[in-house]
Amino acid sequence: MIRKNSPLAKEFWEKGFVESCPVYDMHGHMGTHYAIYFAAPNAPEMVKLIKRANVKKLCFSHHFSLWATNYVGQDPALEACKQFPDYLRFYCGINPNFPEQMMADLKKVAEWMPYCIGLKFLADYHKVPVNAEPYRPALEFANALHLPILFHTWSMSPYDGPDIMKDIIPKYPNITYILGHCFNSQWQVAGEIAKQYDNVYLELTSVPGTRGALETMVNICGSEKILFGTDMPWFDEHQGIGGLLSAQISDDDVHNILHRNAEKILAPFI
């Protein structure tokens, strides 16, 4: 039953969802991908899967907008959101290696709202440090509009590791920083950064299930600074929720992580 003495775990175990504990998945993707076979790569099958766990909103960036930015742009993401407006929101995928496309997309962000909720940076893959010049226009744009940015962050990365993020966070104070993957494996550093800055949240993609990681971060920055995410369709909602419920944290912490914190961030978009 995963965790004894937890009414929340009991209900998730029995039904797969909890009406009073909706889920906001703050880190998803969509579309096929060169490196993996997905059983559910597209919007209809993804929405079918997330409904099982009472996911109210899946906030995603489309693979094509991150890997083939200059060919595809944000159209597939926007179309998916229009098809499933009750369930989907998207991050505008930013690839600073194509500055003209990036600037063109930024100009449209306001008209794409409320489907578009912010930007997605994938610096480790685009091989541009987040604090380097090519990202500056996007950071200034998000700062001016008080937008969230979901950053892929990774341990010791020269593109989006802790030192890089600590460099930009004070410079753009109006951005809501969502640190995807919590600097994978640098849990303590992630917790300390989230504790230091009010506008920094840790996002859990690939973390639930990794023993001890959640407890470390909750102990440092509190569950009020942590958001749930799965990389859907990379990882299954129930795998992530199962990992979260297995951690030695309280039911109140789980409520914060699965929905309360996200509800505050997404309030302007839902």
């Binding site: 797969g16 299930g209 129930h238 795998q239 297995s246 951690a247």
Partner: peptide, 18 residues
């Protein structure tokens, strides 16, 4: 994959697989 991974993660995924 314990102890690296929590046992409950894939338990819930199997329990609610379609």
């Amino acid at each position: 994959g314990a102890p690296r991974y929590e046992r409950g993660a894939m338990m819930l995924a199997i329990k609610h697989a379609d």
